[in-house]
Nucleic acid binder design. Sequence first.
DNA 1: ACAGCTTTGCAACCATGTTGCATCAAGGCA
DNA 2: TGCCTTGATGCAACATGGTTGCAAAGCTGT
Lengths: 132, 132
Amino acid sequence: MNAAEMLRGAGVSATGRRLLVLETLVSAGSAVSAPELLASLGQSMNKVTLYRILDLLVDKHILARHSGPDRTAHYCLGTGHGHFHCRRCGRCLCLHLPGTGLDPASAGLDALGRVDEIEVRVEGVCKECLDR
Amino acid sequence: MNAAEMLRGAGVSATGRRLLVLETLVSAGSAVSAPELLASLGQSMNKVTLYRILDLLVDKHILARHSGPDRTAHYCLGTGHGHFHCRRCGRCLCLHLPGTGLDPASAGLDALGRVDEIEVRVEGVCKECLDR
DNA sequence: ACAGCTTTGCAACCATGTTGCATCAAGGCA
DNA sequence: TGCCTTGATGCAACATGGTTGCAAAGCTGT
Protein backbone atom coordinates (compact mmCIF):
# COMPACT_ATOMS: atom_id res chain seq x y z
CA MET A 1 0.00 0.00 0.00
CA ASN A 2 1.58 3.27 -1.05
CA ALA A 3 1.07 6.71 0.40
CA ALA A 4 -1.58 7.81 -2.09
CA GLU A 5 -3.66 4.72 -1.43
CA MET A 6 -3.41 5.26 2.31
CA LEU A 7 -4.71 8.78 1.95
CA ARG A 8 -7.55 7.94 -0.40
CA GLY A 9 -8.46 4.94 1.73
CA ALA A 10 -8.93 7.33 4.65
CA GLY A 11 -11.20 9.53 2.56
CA VAL A 12 -8.90 12.49 2.05
CA SER A 13 -7.48 13.72 -1.19
CA ALA A 14 -3.85 12.89 -1.88
CA THR A 15 -2.31 16.28 -2.38
CA GLY A 16 1.34 16.84 -3.08
CA ARG A 17 2.06 18.16 0.40
CA ARG A 18 0.37 15.27 2.12
CA LEU A 19 2.19 12.71 0.00
CA LEU A 20 5.47 14.43 0.78
CA VAL A 21 4.87 14.27 4.52
CA LEU A 22 3.63 10.72 4.49
CA GLU A 23 6.42 9.42 2.29
CA THR A 24 9.01 11.14 4.42
CA LEU A 25 7.61 9.39 7.47
CA VAL A 26 7.47 6.04 5.70
CA SER A 27 11.09 6.27 4.63
CA ALA A 28 12.22 7.53 8.05
CA GLY A 29 11.47 4.21 9.68
CA SER A 30 11.53 5.76 13.14
CA ALA A 31 9.31 8.28 14.86
CA VAL A 32 10.00 11.86 13.85
CA SER A 33 9.07 15.19 15.41
CA ALA A 34 7.49 18.09 13.58
CA PRO A 35 10.64 20.26 13.84
CA GLU A 36 12.71 17.40 12.43
CA LEU A 37 10.28 17.07 9.56
CA LEU A 38 10.42 20.80 8.97
CA ALA A 39 14.20 20.70 8.88
CA SER A 40 14.37 17.76 6.51
CA LEU A 41 11.76 19.20 4.18
CA GLY A 42 13.56 22.50 4.10
CA GLN A 43 11.83 25.68 3.05
CA SER A 44 9.56 23.80 0.70
CA MET A 45 6.85 23.38 3.30
CA ASN A 46 5.20 25.94 5.51
CA LYS A 47 5.11 24.95 9.15
CA VAL A 48 1.42 25.63 9.50
CA THR A 49 0.69 23.34 6.58
CA LEU A 50 2.86 20.65 8.12
CA TYR A 51 1.09 20.85 11.48
CA ARG A 52 -2.30 20.74 9.78
CA ILE A 53 -1.34 17.73 7.71
CA LEU A 54 -0.01 15.93 10.79
CA ASP A 55 -3.23 16.68 12.68
CA LEU A 56 -5.26 15.39 9.76
CA LEU A 57 -3.28 12.17 9.44
CA VAL A 58 -3.49 11.50 13.16
CA ASP A 59 -7.23 12.15 13.04
CA LYS A 60 -7.58 9.67 10.19
CA HIS A 61 -5.52 7.09 12.08
CA ILE A 62 -2.83 7.01 9.45
CA LEU A 63 -0.26 8.35 11.87
CA ALA A 64 0.20 7.93 15.59
CA ARG A 65 1.26 10.85 17.73
CA HIS A 66 3.16 10.22 20.90
CA SER A 67 5.02 12.50 23.25
CA GLY A 68 8.77 12.44 23.05
CA PRO A 69 11.28 12.99 25.82
CA ASP A 70 12.07 16.52 24.69
CA ARG A 71 8.46 17.59 25.07
CA THR A 72 7.75 17.62 21.37
CA ALA A 73 5.30 15.26 19.73
CA HIS A 74 6.68 12.50 17.56
CA TYR A 75 4.85 10.88 14.68
CA CYS A 76 5.10 7.43 13.17
CA LEU A 77 3.03 5.14 11.01
CA GLY A 78 0.19 3.08 12.35
CA THR A 79 -0.78 2.66 15.94
CA GLY A 80 2.58 1.85 17.43
CA HIS A 81 2.40 0.42 20.89
CA GLY A 82 5.79 1.39 22.12
CA HIS A 83 8.85 3.48 21.50
CA PHE A 84 12.48 3.39 22.50
CA HIS A 85 14.04 6.79 23.10
CA CYS A 86 17.80 6.94 22.96
CA ARG A 87 19.07 9.52 25.43
CA ARG A 88 22.33 9.94 23.58
CA CYS A 89 21.45 10.29 19.90
CA GLY A 90 17.87 11.34 20.45
CA ARG A 91 16.42 8.84 18.02
CA CYS A 92 13.01 7.41 18.68
CA LEU A 93 12.55 3.85 17.46
CA CYS A 94 9.16 2.24 17.10
CA LEU A 95 8.69 -0.97 19.03
CA HIS A 96 6.24 -3.70 18.23
CA LEU A 97 5.87 -5.40 21.52
CA PRO A 98 4.43 -8.87 21.27
CA GLY A 99 2.83 -10.33 24.35
CA THR A 100 4.03 -8.09 27.09
CA GLY A 101 0.88 -8.90 28.96
CA LEU A 102 -0.35 -5.39 28.52
CA ASP A 103 -4.05 -5.77 28.08
CA PRO A 104 -6.28 -3.61 30.22
CA ALA A 105 -8.11 -6.41 31.95
CA SER A 106 -5.04 -8.25 33.15
CA ALA A 107 -3.48 -5.14 34.58
CA GLY A 108 -6.70 -4.13 36.29
CA LEU A 109 -6.76 -0.95 34.31
CA ASP A 110 -10.39 -1.06 33.35
CA ALA A 111 -11.25 -0.35 36.97
CA LEU A 112 -9.99 3.15 36.31
CA GLY A 113 -12.43 3.90 33.54
CA ARG A 114 -12.44 3.47 29.80
CA VAL A 115 -9.05 2.65 28.32
CA ASP A 116 -8.50 3.92 24.78
CA GLU A 117 -4.82 3.47 24.26
CA ILE A 118 -1.76 2.01 25.92
CA GLU A 119 1.71 3.13 25.04
CA VAL A 120 5.00 1.90 26.40
CA ARG A 121 7.87 4.33 26.53
CA VAL A 122 11.35 2.91 27.02
CA GLU A 123 14.27 5.20 27.71
CA GLY A 124 17.92 4.23 27.48
CA VAL A 125 20.86 4.23 25.12
CA CYS A 126 20.62 2.43 21.81
CA LYS A 127 23.07 -0.23 20.64
CA GLU A 128 24.71 2.02 18.07
CA CYS A 129 25.48 4.65 20.68
CA LEU A 130 26.76 2.05 23.15
CA ASP A 131 29.13 0.56 20.58
CA ARG A 132 30.50 3.91 19.55
CA MET B 1 9.17 10.62 55.81
CA ASN B 2 8.27 14.26 55.44
CA ALA B 3 9.32 16.71 52.75
CA ALA B 4 12.21 18.19 54.70
CA GLU B 5 13.67 14.74 55.36
CA MET B 6 13.37 13.82 51.71
CA LEU B 7 15.28 16.91 50.69
CA ARG B 8 18.02 16.54 53.27
CA GLY B 9 18.30 12.85 52.50
CA ALA B 10 19.03 13.78 48.91
CA GLY B 11 21.75 16.14 50.03
CA VAL B 12 20.07 19.45 49.28
CA SER B 13 19.06 22.11 51.74
CA ALA B 14 15.37 22.27 52.59
CA THR B 15 14.50 25.82 51.66
CA GLY B 16 11.02 27.26 51.97
CA ARG B 17 10.39 27.24 48.24
CA ARG B 18 11.46 23.64 47.83
CA LEU B 19 9.32 22.49 50.72
CA LEU B 20 6.36 24.32 49.24
CA VAL B 21 6.74 22.61 45.87
CA LEU B 22 7.33 19.18 47.34
CA GLU B 23 4.45 19.40 49.79
CA THR B 24 2.11 20.57 47.07
CA LEU B 25 3.04 17.56 45.01
CA VAL B 26 2.66 15.21 47.96
CA SER B 27 -0.82 16.47 48.73
CA ALA B 28 -1.86 16.47 45.07
CA GLY B 29 -1.80 12.68 44.88
CA SER B 30 -1.71 12.76 41.10
CA ALA B 31 0.84 13.96 38.59
CA VAL B 32 0.85 17.70 38.10
CA SER B 33 2.28 19.93 35.40
CA ALA B 34 4.43 22.99 35.98
CA PRO B 35 1.72 25.40 34.80
CA GLU B 36 -0.76 23.75 37.14
CA LEU B 37 1.69 24.15 39.99
CA LEU B 38 2.24 27.77 39.06
CA ALA B 39 -1.49 28.40 39.04
CA SER B 40 -2.08 26.71 42.38
CA LEU B 41 0.84 28.43 44.05
CA GLY B 42 -0.32 31.78 42.78
CA GLN B 43 1.99 34.76 42.57
CA SER B 44 3.97 33.54 45.54
CA MET B 45 6.42 31.65 43.38
CA ASN B 46 8.40 32.81 40.39
CA LYS B 47 8.16 30.46 37.44
CA VAL B 48 11.92 30.30 36.96
CA THR B 49 12.34 29.24 40.56
CA LEU B 50 9.68 26.60 40.13
CA TYR B 51 11.31 25.14 37.03
CA ARG B 52 14.67 25.11 38.73
CA ILE B 53 13.30 23.36 41.79
CA LEU B 54 11.54 20.78 39.62
CA ASP B 55 14.75 20.15 37.69
CA LEU B 56 16.64 19.75 40.92
CA LEU B 57 14.14 17.33 42.44
CA VAL B 58 14.07 15.22 39.28
CA ASP B 59 17.85 15.20 39.24
CA LYS B 60 17.89 14.01 42.86
CA HIS B 61 15.33 11.30 42.06
CA ILE B 62 12.78 12.74 44.44
CA LEU B 63 10.38 13.46 41.60
CA ALA B 64 9.71 11.70 38.34
CA ARG B 65 9.10 13.72 35.21
CA HIS B 66 6.99 12.25 32.46
CA SER B 67 5.50 13.72 29.35
CA GLY B 68 1.81 14.45 29.40
CA PRO B 69 -0.63 14.34 26.51
CA ASP B 70 -0.72 18.11 26.16
CA ARG B 71 3.02 18.38 25.54
CA THR B 72 3.80 19.60 29.02
CA ALA B 73 5.83 17.65 31.51
CA HIS B 74 4.07 16.24 34.54
CA TYR B 75 5.70 15.59 37.88
CA CYS B 76 4.92 13.11 40.60
CA LEU B 77 6.62 11.49 43.55
CA GLY B 78 8.98 8.59 43.21
CA THR B 79 9.70 6.61 40.12
CA GLY B 80 6.19 5.89 38.96
CA HIS B 81 5.97 3.25 36.31
CA GLY B 82 2.75 4.26 34.70
CA HIS B 83 0.15 6.95 34.35
CA PHE B 84 -3.47 7.17 33.34
CA HIS B 85 -4.40 10.29 31.40
CA CYS B 86 -8.06 11.18 31.33
CA ARG B 87 -8.92 12.78 28.01
CA ARG B 88 -11.96 14.49 29.41
CA CYS B 89 -10.90 16.07 32.70
CA GLY B 90 -7.19 16.15 31.93
CA ARG B 91 -6.15 14.55 35.20
CA CYS B 92 -3.10 12.38 35.27
CA LEU B 93 -3.25 9.54 37.80
CA CYS B 94 -0.20 7.61 38.88
CA LEU B 95 -0.41 3.87 38.38
CA HIS B 96 1.52 1.29 40.26
CA LEU B 97 1.44 -1.62 37.93
CA PRO B 98 2.25 -4.92 39.54
CA GLY B 99 3.47 -7.72 37.33
CA THR B 100 2.51 -6.56 33.91
CA GLY B 101 5.37 -8.57 32.54
CA LEU B 102 7.28 -5.45 31.72
CA ASP B 103 10.84 -6.37 32.43
CA PRO B 104 13.36 -5.65 29.70
CA ALA B 105 14.62 -9.19 29.26
CA SER B 106 11.21 -10.77 28.78
CA ALA B 107 10.17 -8.23 26.20
CA GLY B 108 13.44 -8.56 24.33
CA LEU B 109 14.16 -4.94 24.91
CA ASP B 110 17.75 -5.34 25.99
CA ALA B 111 18.60 -6.27 22.41
CA LEU B 112 18.02 -2.60 21.60
CA GLY B 113 20.66 -1.31 23.95
CA ARG B 114 20.73 -0.23 27.58
CA VAL B 115 17.31 0.23 29.10
CA ASP B 116 17.13 2.87 31.83
CA GLU B 117 13.44 3.35 32.35
CA ILE B 118 10.12 1.93 31.27
CA GLU B 119 6.95 3.94 31.49
CA VAL B 120 3.43 2.91 30.60
CA ARG B 121 1.06 5.59 29.43
CA VAL B 122 -2.63 4.76 29.39
CA GLU B 123 -5.11 7.10 27.77
CA GLY B 124 -8.83 7.01 28.22
CA VAL B 125 -11.64 8.46 30.30
CA CYS B 126 -11.60 8.08 34.06
CA LYS B 127 -14.45 6.59 36.07
CA GLU B 128 -15.54 9.92 37.51
CA CYS B 129 -15.95 11.41 34.05
CA LEU B 130 -17.76 8.34 32.74
CA ASP B 131 -20.27 8.43 35.59
CA ARG B 132 -20.96 12.10 35.16
C1' DA C 1 31.80 43.00 59.33
C1' DC C 2 33.32 40.71 55.36
C1' DA C 3 33.99 37.24 51.65
C1' DG C 4 32.08 33.55 49.15
C1' DC C 5 28.55 30.56 48.19
C1' DT C 6 23.66 29.31 47.21
C1' DT C 7 19.00 30.58 46.31
C1' DT C 8 15.52 33.52 44.34
C1' DG C 9 13.61 37.02 41.21
C1' DC C 10 13.10 39.81 37.04
C1' DA C 11 13.27 40.58 32.23
C1' DA C 12 14.19 39.14 28.04
C1' DC C 13 14.46 35.51 25.08
C1' DC C 14 13.65 30.98 22.45
C1' DA C 15 11.01 27.06 20.51
C1' DT C 16 6.89 24.67 19.60
C1' DG C 17 2.59 25.07 18.16
C1' DT C 18 -1.96 27.80 16.95
C1' DT C 19 -5.26 31.28 14.93
C1' DG C 20 -7.03 34.55 11.55
C1' DC C 21 -7.22 35.81 7.26
C1' DA C 22 -5.86 36.09 2.41
C1' DT C 23 -4.78 33.43 -1.66
C1' DC C 24 -4.62 29.61 -4.69
C1' DA C 25 -6.05 25.33 -6.81
C1' DA C 26 -9.65 21.79 -8.05
C1' DG C 27 -14.09 20.31 -9.25
C1' DG C 28 -19.10 21.08 -10.47
C1' DC C 29 -22.32 23.33 -13.34
C1' DA C 30 -24.59 26.66 -16.47
C1' DT D 1 -15.38 28.36 -21.50
C1' DG D 2 -16.49 31.18 -17.52
C1' DC D 3 -18.20 31.20 -12.86
C1' DC D 4 -18.95 29.58 -8.24
C1' DT D 5 -18.04 26.89 -4.27
C1' DT D 6 -15.03 24.28 -1.54
C1' DG D 7 -10.84 22.69 0.24
C1' DA D 8 -5.71 23.35 0.60
C1' DT D 9 -1.81 26.32 1.38
C1' DG D 10 0.81 30.38 2.91
C1' DC D 11 1.94 34.45 5.73
C1' DA D 12 1.97 37.07 9.86
C1' DA D 13 0.94 37.51 14.32
C1' DC D 14 0.11 35.40 18.51
C1' DA D 15 0.04 32.02 22.66
C1' DT D 16 2.28 28.97 25.75
C1' DG D 17 5.89 26.35 27.97
C1' DG D 18 10.35 26.67 29.15
C1' DT D 19 15.31 28.76 29.43
C1' DT D 20 19.20 32.10 30.03
C1' DG D 21 21.70 36.05 31.87
C1' DC D 22 22.28 38.73 35.38
C1' DA D 23 21.38 41.08 39.62
C1' DA D 24 19.69 41.07 44.37
C1' DA D 25 18.93 38.68 48.70
C1' DG D 26 20.26 35.03 52.24
C1' DC D 27 23.17 31.91 54.47
C1' DT D 28 27.76 30.38 56.40
C1' DG D 29 32.35 30.52 58.08
C1' DT D 30 36.13 33.48 59.50
